Amino acid sequence: MSNSLTVALIQTSLIWENPEANRKYIEQKVNTINSVDLIVLPEMFTSGFTMNASEVAETMDGKTISWLKDLARLKQAAIVGSLVISENNTYYNRLVCVEPSGKISQYDKRHTFTLAGEHKVYTAGTDKLILDYKGWKICPMVCYDLRFPVWARNIEDYDLLLYVANWPKVRIDAWDTLLKARSVENMAYCIGVNRVGLDGNNYEYSGHSAAYDVLGNRIDSIPESKEAIENITLEKEHIKKYREKLGFLKDRDSFNLKA
């Protein structure tokens, strides 16, 4: 168990529907990172936010998962991001967390983005994931999930809420506002990693990747609209201090979410 967790946020452009090129491009960035516990990539980091699932889909035994295992072992850090996975004749926007040991945890995006027709291509997940990594409880989610606070509600006393995204510039104010709100209402660190650049549909992405502490204070200095890598160190003592002092989570409403 570690009292601190160092997280590398990779805000990057993506090469449209080209997994091999994206793996090479991202690997160059990962190779510049040293001495971190967790590396975070954007949503659909092998392809961009595409509805052409058949063009880019892989399996859990495919090249990207094997590549992630090798990278995680080499860097001795867990790596998180989402990609298009084909399984049982169904497509998923699947977030994976690959640890240095080779252990893989997965989360299928719960809220598919109906505005873009994601629900017509990808099957939505039903299960929330809480990772236990180095003594830290981490709740990873994907992009559109950010708009739904009930799904992210901190009933597990997790330490870190994590979003990977392809969130377009046109709605970036909502991204900024909701990331901060999720940290405050859940009394947890909240990190969001978004892409930059143009995709194959000519949508523009302006990044705004960010990290917030349990009080909603921003603790990173990632620039907007530019590729960037920044390491952020999170502290268990910060969480403990303010949860004990303020006690807001003790007053949360009691209810169950049904699928």
Rank of each mutant, 00 (worst) to 15 (best):
I85D: 00
S86E: 15
N88D: 14
N89P: 12
Y92A: 00
V96N: 08
C97W: 05
E99P: 02
S101N: 06
G102E: 00
K103A: 04
S105L: 14
S105G: 06
D108Y: 09
K109A: 02
R110N: 06
R110D: 09
R110L: 11
F113Q: 04
F113K: 01
T114F: 11
T114A: 11
T114R: 05
L115T: 09
G117P: 08
G117Y: 10
E118L: 09
H119K: 12
V121W: 04
T123Q: 15
G125R: 12
D127G: 05
I130G: 00
W136N: 04
K137R: 06
V142C: 02
F148M: 03
P149A: 13
V150M: 10
V150T: 03
V150S: 12
R153K: 15
D157F: 14
D157A: 13
Y158I: 15
Y158S: 10
L160Y: 08
L160R: 12
L161W: 01
L162A: 09
Y163M: 08
V164T: 15
A165I: 09
V170D: 01
R171E: 07
D173C: 08
D176Q: 09
L179E: 11
K180A: 00
K180Y: 02
A181E: 01
R182W: 12
E185G: 02
N186T: 01
M187G: 05
A188L: 11
A188Q: 03
Y189G: 03
